[in-house]
Nucleic acid binder design. Structure first.
Length: 734
RNA sequence: AGCGGGGUGGGGUAGCCAGGAAAUCCCGCCGGGCUCAUAACCCGGAGAUCGGUGGUUCAAAUCCACCCCCCGCUACCA
């Protein structure tokens, strides 16, 4: 059987992140590898989507050409795919001339078949930006659901496809100027003509995933409208008709054709036949993508293929939900998430693939957290699986050096063999159904079972008793190891390959069939010296390097004197509980002596001492200031003198004194602590999300944040540190 | 507000669409075993009125209705 696998094309406007991998490329690759090991002929393609306005905008920002931007990210993302072991037959790109040719041919064919037509239309034009706006760059109110920030192409709220002119109060998404509509001529795709056919086609796709069916039905409900497939742009595929020199084919039309162009290119490069993949009705087409891409793959692309007339339609569209990062959406601009190039620098691809599979958002959004990542990898992948493989292999290697003979088997042995067989069977079922997580769970169970079997047989003791029995136990243990390697190969290709070698094989595991997981080992085959498969991930404690250097403490002012030689300064005598110090403070313009006397203040206790005109200051008092007010910091409740200030519950523990210069580099700000949508936000110069459990009574109060890797709020236990009087949020601390 | 997801032993989850005997797995906790292995492994135990209320049914975590609570999205981006 032949299987075509198309994976949504990542946009070449930035490096891809873990969400992309886990939501599309990894599941696709697992499926592809599995199908190949089932003996099917697989063609899997994807590539960089390099056209479209966002790239031109990035290019403008950086003063580069769109091609340069596309080149950069195409390279980066190709490397990511390669390193992750995503086994594309071709990872193509839409700016490739061959792709453009295919798009034009496709276009002309649709034109000839009567599915494209010219139409003069009024398009949104931003008088300020001086250009026609792409659909996505027009925002306004959705006519269907009333959502105010609907984009011109699609309402993100109700999911309906829109045309910019449907929007109420359209405005430019870039500058906010109300848009004008100017006349221009464009090519339309007669989607409406195909509505019936699409509905009919969808009807029997009951085996699709729930989310895909639901989303698609919902989408078609509103009726299919003809869509313009050209834009007033310069960056994109040219329109192969006269009079359209200043227009380009729109990305959504262009990018999906990539599946075809990449197939053709692959055939060309490898001297293969692409047509059997696209025209032979027995070839099944699978598409892997994130949920936002569903309508393009269940409606538009199929409609385009229908209009084309002789190409295969999708058999299954496998859409995943989103992977969130600590509960938030991945966001480049906010720096939330993990990006692949960086992740790959720190972790073995199979570790990423393991976690990606275990936490795959197959049916619902899932959440990435570092804690969970470390725990799952260490405890499930390494402790359970890798350790079992290693203990079995090293035992075999040391005691036999080859695959030992399987002698007479007992109950326990029979059960083990049965477990292997059943695992294969179950995994086959799940994999055929594209239920990757379930399949993988079976695999993990087998690894767990391996330990159980090994323990039950206790070969270390058995060997002393009977070498023959021990050999049998080890033979079967290695049988489990082999099964794990073969069955796990689609998921952890690199590791499976290694284990395969340890088992004494010379060739690649991928030359073998999935069913060989249960094949009897060749007795007497020399084993290779096993190595540890993975080092455990060290759980790195969160470190706040800046905060750790400063020692803030509570002190009480015992006396206030004028500085003898400098009339802006006070000389304070302060009590730190077990210690008294002299401090210089520049508060004379803002506070009278009696306003300071007896007050609790916050001082930097480990600041390098400094001389102010003959008086030595042993520390520094902290105050928040805006342009009119200075409010010294003070604990909002009773705390013992000398108490150490904490930040998000973290005690600083500075080793030495803090240089004044270093202190100057530290950022502290006055903030208003508020609760928004259930989370705590500290509003200063900007909104700081506080991920620290804050007592209810702090909400609505002022506080102080210390900016480290993330904003830390200052307190002592339940007592908040804040300016003694209201200072505008964002006020600096000095 | 709209849309989407969720509320299952201390934490994180599976099961729910196709209702049925002991509710899954990981971590944690308690007790035991083992010492071959990456302080890894194995066994046993405590611990859940499956968010609430009402309904359908011989039978509901699972179906229906209503309610409560959480979270996400509504910025380029799977």
């Amino acid at each position: 059987m032949r299987i075509f696998i198309g994976v949504a094309w990542p946009y070449a406007n930035g490096p891809i992140h873990l969400g992309h991998i886990v939501g599309a490329y990894l599941p696709a690759d697992i499926f592809a590898r599995y199908q190949r090991m089932q003996g099917n002929e697989v063609l899997m393609v994807s590539g960089s989507d390099e056209h479209g306005t966002p790239i031109t905008i990035t290019a403008e920002k950086e003063g580069k050409s769109p091609q340069e931007i596309a080149d950069r990210y195409h390279k980066i993302n190709s490397e990511v795919m390669e390193k992750m072991g995503i086994s594309f037959d071709l990872y193509f790109r839409t700016s490739h001339p061959h792709h453009e040719e295919v798009v034009k041919e496709f276009f002309l064919r649709l034109w000839e078949n009567g599915y494209l037509y010219k139409k003069k239309m009024l398009l949104p034009y931003c008088p300020k930006c001086n250009r026609f706006l792409p659909d996505r760059y027009v925002v306004g109110t959705c006519p269907y659901c009333g959502y105010e920030n609907a984009h011109g192409d699609q309402c993100d709220n109700c999911g309906r496809m829109l045309d910019p002119k449907d929007l109420i109060n359209p405005r430019c998404a870039i500058c906010g100027t109300p848009t004008e509509f100017r006349e221009t001529e464009h090519i339309f795709f007669a989607l409406s003509k195909l509505e019936e056919s699409i509905l009919k086609w969808i009807r029997d796709k009951t085996y699709w995933r729930d989310n895909v069916i639901k989303f698609t039905r919902n989408f078609v409900k509103g009726g299919l409208k003809d869509r313009a497939i050209t834009r007033d742009l310069e960056w994109g595929v040219e329109v192969p008709l006269d009079g359209f020199d200043d227009k380009r084919i729109y990305v959504w039309f262009d990018a999906v054709i990539g599946y075809l162009s990449a197939s053709i290119e692959w055939a060309k490069q490898n001297n293969k036949d692409w047509e059997v993949f696209w025209k032979d009705k027995n070839t099944k087409h699978y598409y892997f993508l994130g949920k936002d891409n569903i309508p393009f793959h269940t409606i538009i692309w199929p409609a385009m293929l229908m209009a084309h007339g002789e190409l295969n339609l999708p058999y299954n569209v496998v859409a995943n939900e989103y992977l969130r990062f600590s509960g938030e959406k991945f966001s480049k601009s906010r720096g939330i998430g993990v990006w692949m190039p960086e992740l790959l620098e720190n972790f073995h691809p199979d570790i990423i693939r393991f976690y990606g599979t275990v936490n795959m958002p197959e049916n619902r959004d899932s959440d990435f957290t570092w804690d969970d990542f470390v725990q799952k990898v260490n405890e499930e992948l390494i402790d359970k699986f890798a350790n079992f493989v290693h203990r079995a292999l090293i035992f075999a290697y040391r005691n036999f050096g080859e695959i030992p003979t399987r002698g007479e088997v007992d109950e326990v042995d029979r059960e083990a063999i049965k477990t292997i067989t059943q695992t294969l069977k179950k995994m086959n079922e799940y994999m055929d159904n594209v239920e990757l997580k379930k399949a993988f769970k079976e695999w993990l169970n087998l690894a767990r079972y391996g330990n159980v079997y090994f323990d039950r047989k206790a070969p270390w003791a058995l060997c002393k008793e009977s070498r023959e029995k021990c050999a049998t136990a080890i033979n079967i243990s290695l049988q489990i190891v082999q099964a794990l390697a073969v069955l796990g190969a689609p998921f952890l290709p690199f590791t499976s390959e290694r284990i395969w070698k340890f088992l004494g094989n010379e060739d690649s595991i991928f030359l073998h069939r999935y069913t060989e997981a249960i094949k009897n080992l060749q007795v007497g085959k020399k084993l290779n010296k096993p190595e540890v498969l993975f080092e455990k991930i060290k759980r790195e404690e969160e470190r706040y390097e800046k905060w750790e250097q400063i020692d803030l403490r509570v002190a009480e002012v015992e006396s206030v004197e004028d500085h003898p030689n400098e009339d802006k300064l006070y000389v304070l005598r302060i009590n730190l509980g077990n210690e008294k110090r002299t401090l210089i403070a520049g508060l004379k313009r803002f506070y009278k002596k009696e306003e300071l006397f007896g007050k609790k203040i916050i001082i930097i206790a480990n600041l390098e001492p400094a001389n102010f005109r003959g008086v030595k200051s042993e520390g520094m008092l902290l105050a928040g200031e805006d342009d009119t007010t200075v409010g010294f910091l003070t604990p909002q409740g009773n705390v013992p003198l000398g108490s150490k200030v904490q930040a998000n519950g973290i005690q600083s523990n500075p080793k030495g004194i803090l240089k004044f210069k270093k202190f100057q580099k530290m950022k502290m700000e006055v903030v208003n602590i508020e609760k928004e949508n259930g989370r705590i936000v500290a509003k200063g110069n900007k909104d700081y999300a506080i991920d620290f459990k804050v007592p209810e009574d702090w909400i609505g109060k002022q506080g102080v944040v210390f900016i480290d890797k993330k904003p830390l709020i200052l307190h002592i236990g339940d007592i908040l540190i804040a300016p003694v009087k209201y200072v505008k949020p964002g006020g600096k601390i000095r």
